[in-house]
């Protein structure tokens, strides 16, 4: 373990983290903090309305209504668990939103920015292969940044729990039995963590496509990466309008335009469920978890041709990015 932490590759990952800290960590933390602050505002509004209405709510443990409510809530009422789950999901979705933007611009800049500011000459003066450099960026995109996003998701959820606990306690409700004793949200979180490998394989064509232009474009990698597939899609649709031979329009926009650009969105592989009616998500998976499917169905998607063909194409694009990183000669 110690040898692993000290291996040069881990230092490459650390370097990526230092460079991306602001985008990867602080934007996530900021958004989670905003969510918590908004919920505090909500609580204040509710409390203000209650006080103005002159209603005093205080549950006395052992009291009639208090006990009924507390026991109703603590007996795993699906409603309460669903509420807590939704809270975890909200933090997770926000993190996924930020992560999508972070990944897109991280990958476009990963091999371009240091060419632009010529710091590539410093990196290349060290005994690190170009393959290791590019792979450190791939691993950062598929593992490090998603783990940071999910770490912030969990932290945000726990922060929200603390706020809610104070509020509950102020009204005489026991936050430990009501809020903290439920396993559901944490299993949802683990469910999200388990999507990382699936999202990684699904995103390979986009990771490869963006890294390719980051390594290959002389300037403006964003324009190349976006305009090439979009213009090709428009051209294909136009040829279709002329009723000349063309690639099926939906296939083209889905696999050759959206996939190389948008498959970095975490969990966007759930679209393969709809496309393949063979997937049956068992009825006992309820609530929001149904969207992701079971662990079994999640990993079954890896057997779909669109998954592994995409992975092959993505790997080839990453190899091309390594080649350009090695031989692009301009500084």
């Amino acid at each position: 373990m110690k040898a692993l932490v000290k291996s040069p590759f881990v230092w490459l990952l650390r370097r990526e983290y230092w460079q991306e800290r602001r985008g990867a960590l602080w934007s996530q933390v900021t958004l989670a903090a905003i969510l918590i602050v908004l919920s505090i505002f909500g609580i204040i509004v509710a409390e203000a309305a209650r006080i103005r209405a002159g209603v005093n709510v205080h549950f006395v443990t052992g009291g009639d209504i208090g006990q009924t409510l507390a026991s109703a809530l603590s007996h795993d009422t699906p409603g309460l668990v669903l509420g807590l789950d939704s809270m975890m999901w909200t933090f997770g979705l926000m993190a996924a939103l930020v992560l999508s933007f972070t990944l897109f611009f991280y990958l476009l800049g990963a091999l371009y920015d240091d060419r632009k500011d010529r710091s590539i000459l410093f990196w290349k003066s060290l005994p690190v292969s170009d393959t290791a450099t590019v792979l450190s960026k791939v691993v950062t995109a598929i593992l490090v940044l998603p783990l940071i996003a999910l770490g912030v998701t969990l932290a945000g959820y726990l922060g929200e729990q603390i706020v809610a606990s104070i509020w509950f306690a102020a009204h005489g409700l026991n936050p430990f039995t009501l809020l903290w004793a439920h396993w559901g949200p944490y299993s949802t979180w683990l469910h999200l963590v388990a999507t990382i490998p699936v999202s990684a394989v699904w995103a390979l064509p986009a990771i490869g496509w963006l890294l390719f232009w980051s390594a290959a474009a002389r300037s403006k990698p964003f324009l190349w990466a976006v305009m090439v597939p979009v213009l090709a899609g428009v051209l294909n649709s136009w040829i279709a309008l002329l009723r000349l031979p063309h690639v099926p329009i939906e296939f083209f926009w889905g696999n050759l335009v959206a996939r190389p650009l948008l498959s970095i969105i975490p969990g966007s592989w759930v679209t393969t469920y709809a496309a393949n009616p063979g997937f049956v998500i068992p009825a006992d998976i309820t609530g929001i978890d149904r969207t992701l499917g079971t662990f079994g169905t999640m990993y079954q998607t890896l057997l779909q041709p669109e998954m592994w063909i995409g992975a092959i194409v993505g790997t080839a694009l990453i190899a091309a990015a390594i080649w350009f990183r090695r031989w692009r000669d301009e500084v």
Partner: peptide
């Protein structure tokens, strides 16, 4: 390779 190649960040 000249002075300005250390990454600015």
């Amino acid at each position: 390779a000249d002075v300005a190649t250390l990454p600015r960040w």
